[in-house]
Design a protein around this nucleic acid. Structure first.
Lengths: 248, 248
DNA sequence: CGCCGCAATTGACCCAAATCAAGGTGTAAA
DNA sequence: TTTACACCTTGATTTGGGTCAATTGCGGCG
C-alpha cells in the first residue's frame, strides 16, 4: 500500500500525477483495461513515471534500459530517418497509446515528444514475463500491434497513391477518428504538431501542407479554433475528399 | 492415419503435393517450425490445401469462410484500392509466409495470386483456439505480425521520402534479402511480378520503374537473367543507392 | 516459321508538388 | 510597447516523375 507515490527528488520522476492506477486517466484506454484489480496492483509495482519536454528524444532504445510505456498524456511522434536527414513520421501516439519496443527493420525508429509528455514506463523483459503468466495481456498487446499494422497499411496507400489534397484531408479525418465522436457532429480537433511534422507524416513539404490547409479553409471545411486546433464543420465531406472521390 | 491425402475430385483440393507435413518444403520457414511432431499432426488434421492460378483473387475475406494460410509456393500480392482504382501493393508473400486474416482499417486489403500459388489453409477460429492451448504458437504469430509491421514502417519511409532510383534499388535489395544469401556474393533473384505491380508497390508508374531498371542495367548493377529474373552483381552498391547516400 | 498479343521500353511533353524566396503572424520576453 | 524569433503563409519558378504515344521484344500458337 505504501506505493511509489512519494519519490520526489529523483530526476524527472513525476510527482504531479498521483501514480495510483485507480486515478489513471488512460487506464480504460490502455492495455491496463484488461487487467484485474490485483493484476493492476502487481503491474503498478513495477512501473515508473517520467515526463518529457517538447522536442525531447524519448530514447528507450539501444540504451541498455529497454523500456516500454503507456502514454499518460501528450503527443509523441515516431519517425525514421534517411542518412541525409530526410524524415518520415510513421505515426503519432496520444494519451492511452502504447509505446512498444522500437523494433527496427532496415531503419531505426525514433520517438520524440511533440508536446509535454507523461509516460508510465515498464521494463520490457518484466512485462514479457507477465505476458507468459497473463495470456489476456499478451492477447491485448497482440491486438494493439495488429491495429497499428492496420493503420500503417492504410497509410501506405496514402503515401503511395494519394494526392496532396487527399493526404491533408486524410490527416484531419485521422485526427477526428482518434478523438472519436460522431461524423455528422461538427467537432474540434487538437493539432499539437507543426506544419513540418504534418508534412513529414504525409510525405509532403511544409509549404504544400500549408497551401492545402488554406484551400480547405476557403472551402469552409476547416476553421481555425485557437492556436493549435481546428473545428471540422463537415467531417463526411472531408472523408469524401480523403477517400479520393471528389471531382475537384 | 488415413489422412487427407486421397481427396481428389474436390474442386481445387490439390493432390499434387503429398500433403503430409513431414515432406512440406516450407515447414521450417513457416510458423509450423515451432510445433512438436504431435502438435503438427493435430494441426495437419485441420488443414486443407488449395491452388490458385495467376491473377486469381484469394478471397478468404468477408466470405463467411474466414480462413488463414501458409504459402507453400508461389507469390501473392496484397493490395489496397482507392475508389477510383488507384492501387497500392502493401506487400508480397512468398513460400513460407503466413497469409493472416485480412484485417482492414479504413481500406480493405485484397490478396491476389501473382504466380500459381499453393496454400495450406486453416480455419481462423480453430487456429485461434489452438493459440489458447499452445502459447508458443501465439508467440510465433505475434512475432510474425511484428516483423510485418517492421517492414511496413520501413516501406512508409520509402513511399514518403525516397526518390524513384532509391525506390527501385530498394525493391531489388528487398528481393535479395528475402532470398537471403550473402551481400558480397552476386546472386540471382526471381522477379515474378509485372512492372506495373512493382510500380504499385513503390508508389510509381510502370514507365518510371522501367526507366530506372534500364538505368541500373546501364550502371551494371542489374543483369537480366532469363525472362523473370535478374542477377545482382553488386548488392552492397544497390543497398547504398537504396539507402539514399549515392551522389548520383 | 511467321503472326499475334501483351508486356516492356523509350521518347516527347506536361503538371503537381518541390524548391527558392519573401512576407506575415503570434507569442513571449525585455 | 517593442523586439525577437519561430512558425506559418503566400508567391514565383523549377523539376522529378507522370501522362500520352509510339516502338520493340518475346512467348505462345496456328
Amino acid at each position: 500500500m505504501g506505493g511509489v507515490t512519494a519519490e520526489t527528488g529523483c530526476l524527472r520522476l513525476t510527482p504531479i500525477r498521483a501514480s495510483r492506477c485507480a486515478v489513471c486517466g488512460v487506464r480504460e484506454a490502455s492495455f491496463c483495461a484488461v487487467l484485474s484489480a490485483s493484476e493492476l496492483q502487481q503491474l503498478h509495482a513495477m512501473s515508473s513515471q517520467k515526463v518529457f519536454e517538447p522536442g525531447e528524444l524519448i530514447v528507450e532504445e539501444d540504451a541498455a534500459v529497454r523500456q516500454v510505456a503507456n502514454v499518460l498524456s501528450g503527443t509523441i511522434k515516431l519517425f525514421k530517418l534517411l542518412p541525409d536527414g530526410r524524415q518520415q513520421i510513421t505515426g503519432f501516439l496520444f494519451g492511452g497509446d502504447f509505446l512498444g519496443p522500437m523494433l527496427s527493420g532496415e531503419y531505426a525508429t525514433f520517438a520524440e515528444a511533440v508536446t509535454r509528455v507523461e509516460l508510465c514506463l515498464f521494463d520490457q523483459d518484466r512485462l514479457r514475463e507477465q505476458m507468459d503468466a497473463w495470456p489476456h495481456l499478451e492477447r491485448r498487446l497482440f491486438e494493439d500491434a495488429t491495429a497499428t499494422l492496420d493503420r500503417a497499411l492504410d497509410w501506405m496507400l496514402l503515401l503511395g497513391r494519394k494526392t496532396a489534397t487527399e493526404r491533408v484531408a486524410s490527416f484531419f479525418v485521422m485526427l477526428a477518428d482518434r478523438v472519436a465522436s460522431r461524423d455528422d457532429v461538427q467537432l474540434t480537433v487538437d493539432v499539437p504538431m507543426s506544419r513540418s511534422d504534418i508534412a513529414d507524416y504525409l510525405g509532403l513539404t511544409m509549404e504544400t501542407v500549408s497551401r492545402q490547409i488554406s484551400h480547405l479553409k476557403r472551402q469552409g471545411l476547416l476553421e481555425p479554433s485557437g492556436a493549435h486546433a481546428f473545428t471540422l464543420p463537415d467531417v463526411p465531406a472531408l472523408r469524401r475528399i480523403a477517400g479520393g472521390n471528389e471531382p475537384n
